[in-house]
Write a protein that binds this DNA or RNA. Structure first.
Length: 597
RNA sequence: GGGGGUGUAGCUCAGUUUGGUUAGAGCGCCGGCCUGUCACGCCGGAGGCCGCGAGUUCGAGUCUCGUCACUCCCGCCA
């Protein structure tokens, strides 16, 4: 007999009755009846009830065992009587009578409970992650993550994508996030950087003549954490394709994402092709470049209504003359809400930094009511109803500000109202593309033209448009994929031409010398035959998070760091020895310690 | 870097609004009883720098200030 097990803890059925079996696992629960004792033995595959009676010579030993100890049990698989069958367990038709019992590893008193109970605070869960991971929910999440990644790999390779590995020790890139640096021993004073993404490598793979690249790529960025953003490191489904248009990229990734969501959830999933929403339309109608399409509310521009004859709402009129716009968010079936409902929203708006949140309610007869209704004559009110698609029993909220601010704030109002009124479609994954991002934007503080997203994107219209257009009118072949308001990924058709790249950078104020210096490797590659190419890189962690329906990325990550980018289990980061520093030609220049008073 | 929330037993939390005897509950732990439980049950027990430090007060878990930790958000994340 195998020293540890003949079966797993999830395996035994009626078919095994009468067999002598051996199981190993963790003591999930112990129920001690004095003369009769049950142990629920657990491994990754399930739980099997083991039983021992007081007449057994092993009884005392089993009685001593503490939960979460690892033990090996040998005995006979026996049927449970009809009234003791447990349908909650897959093995609940049978149990194992303990004949022999070996303690492989006794557990001390636990700092956190594994079986049942609420999970403790995160610092304890992270410090004892190996215990936390034994909990049912974490086992489920981590298994799901593994299955999703396997499924993605298969879907990609089935489409002819090849998996590549790119370097982890590479060079610091001048654009983007803060790099993690690794000092070089052989080159004093020089540093490697961990890749923020294999962006340049995947483009170079295309230049190298490979056609369809993908990688479950680790990415490292030294930026502060969020609930949906790990500090330090995360994974992307990084992909790139040669000789493709934007639509070809969409056509390749849409079935992968749709398929993965369909495979692992019961929820409704947007079928390909996903809606494509131009950036400017997204900002107008949804007030964000990450529209959550579960929210049915649509923002409309009602500037014209407030300049109509007879409108005396001067706060808006005056702002409009200095370039402001009016955006409106409908509040369906809210006209009968008490005054406190509107006051609460108004208070919230002030907390968000807005002057307030104007509104009109339309009663059953369609008559406009509310603090500002009297400044807006009927003709203008009718136009408002017509444009915004509201009517009797609805209300409508107004945001008046310069276009960018108005967009962003009306987006917040839309999100807030959607949540408050419980309008979001339930049990649904709504996927869409945001496309046609502007290539450049004007920095409002400095007045300078800057890249608005990825400087390596191909400008729409190519070199000719680049030379003749107002930079802020230029669009890029740059796109994001959004699921339920969460950005899964950015991507682009890349700029594969050295001449266009130099021109694109010169518009953003980079001299040719600077570009040559900073991106010499890429430019050189583009001068020796580069195929048109493009791709994207959906975040694996966020996909898993959405499918697992977890609000927090640490719930679907094996060994995450906390918000301060510390690994509480491994105690990283940590100090290193003097010799290690010496080898790396480093001397510490620490900030002064805060004085103790 | 900034703002919010939280911090009380090994764990999850009540108690803080309105300062006032000995700071409670559930789970866990230890001891006892229990032959069909599966969140077993019953009896008993141990376990507290109320995050830490100052201050106000006759008296602070409770009020004030500072500080630390965790978390959420803003900045940041091409």
């Amino acid at each position: 007999m195998h020293p540890y097990r003949t079966h797993t803890c999830g395996e035994l059925r009626r078919d095994h009755i009468g067999q002598n079996v051996r199981l190993s696992g963790w003591v999930h629960r112990k129920r001690d009846h004095g003369n009769l004792l049950f142990i629920d033995l657990r491994d990754q595959y399930g739980i099997t009830q083991c039983v021992i009676e007081t007449d057994s010579p092993k009884f005392h030993e089993v009685e001593e065992i503490r939960p979460e100890s690892v033990v090996t049990v040998t005995g006979e698989t026996v049927a449970r009587s009809d009234d003791t069958v447990n349908l909650k367990l897959s093995t609940g038709q049978v149990e194992v009578t303990i004949k022999s019992f070996t303690v492989e590893s006794m557990a001390e008193t636990l700092p956190m409970q594994v079986a049942g109970g609420q999970p403790p605070g995160e610092d304890i869960r992270l410090r004892y992650r190996f215990l936390d991971l034994r909990r049912e929910q974490m086992q489920k999440n981590i298994k799901l993550r593994g299955a999703i990644i396997t499924s993605i790999r298969k879907r990609m390779t089935d489409q002819g994508f090849m998996e590549f590995q790119t370097p982890i020790l590479t060079s610091s890139s001048p654009e983007g996030a803060r790099d993690y640096l690794v000092p070089s021993r052989l080159h004093p004073g020089q540093f490697y950087a961990l890749p923020q993404a294999p962006q340049q490598f995947k483009q170079l793979i295309m230049v190298s003549g490979f056609d369809r690249y993908f990688q479950i790529a680790p990415c490292f960025r030294d930026e502060d954490a969020r609930a949906d953003r790990s500090p330090g490191e995360f994974y992307q489904l990084d992909m790139e394709m040669a000789f493709v248009t934007q639509e070809d990229v969409f056509g390749a990734i849409e079935p992968v994402l749709h398929g993965v969501f369909e495979e692992f959830t019961e929820w409704k999933v947007t079928s390909p092709p996903f809606p494509r929403i131009p950036f400017r339309e997204a900002m107008l109608r949804y007030g964000t470049d990450k529209p959550d399409l579960r929210n049915p509310l649509i923002i409309t521009d009602l500037t014209e209504c407030f300049t109509m004859e007879g409108v005396t709402f001067n706060a808006f009129r005056k702002a409009i003359t200095s370039g402001a716009v009016v955006r409106a968010i409908p509040g369906p079936a809210t006209a009968k809400r008490p005054r406190s409902f509107f006051d609460k929203l108004n208070d919230w708006a002030r907390d968000e930094g807005a002057p307030g949140l104007g509104y009109i309610t339309f009663d059953e007869a369609g008559i406009g009511k509310g603090p500002i209704a009297k400044y807006i004559p009927e003709a203008a009110q009718n136009r408002i109803k017509e444009l915004a698609g509201v009517g009797s029993g609805d209300s409508i909220f107004f945001v008046c500000d310069q276009p960018n601010n108005a967009s962003v704030f009306s987006g917040l109002v839309r999100t807030r109202l959607g949540a408050e009124l419980d309008l979001l479609e339930k049990n649904s994954y709504r996927l869409c593309w945001t496309v046609d991002f502007p290539m450049y934007e004007r920095n409002e503080e400095t007045g300078r033209i800057e890249f608005s997203h990825n400087p390596f994107s191909m400008p729409q219209g190519g070199l000719q448009k680049l030379e003749t257009s107002d930079p802020t009118d230029l669009l890029a072949y740059q796109y994001d994929i959004i699921c339920n308001g969460v950005e899964l990924s950015s991507g682009a058709i890349r700029n594969h031409r050295a001449d266009v790249m130099l021109k694109a950078f010169s518009i953003a104020g980079y001299s040719a010398d600077t570009v040559e210096e900073k991106f010499g490797g890429m430019l050189r590659a583009f001068r020796f035959g580069a195929p048109p190419h493009g791709g994207l890189a959906p975040g694996i962690d966020r996909i898993v998070m959405l499918i697992a329906n977890e609000p927090n990325i640490r719930e679907i990550t094996l060994f995450p760091m906390n918000q301060q980018a510390q690994d509480l289990m491994m105690e990283a980061p940590n100090t290193v020895g003097a010799q290690q520093l010496k080898d790396l030609h480093l001397r510490l220049a620490l900030p002064p310690k805060p004085k103790e008073s």
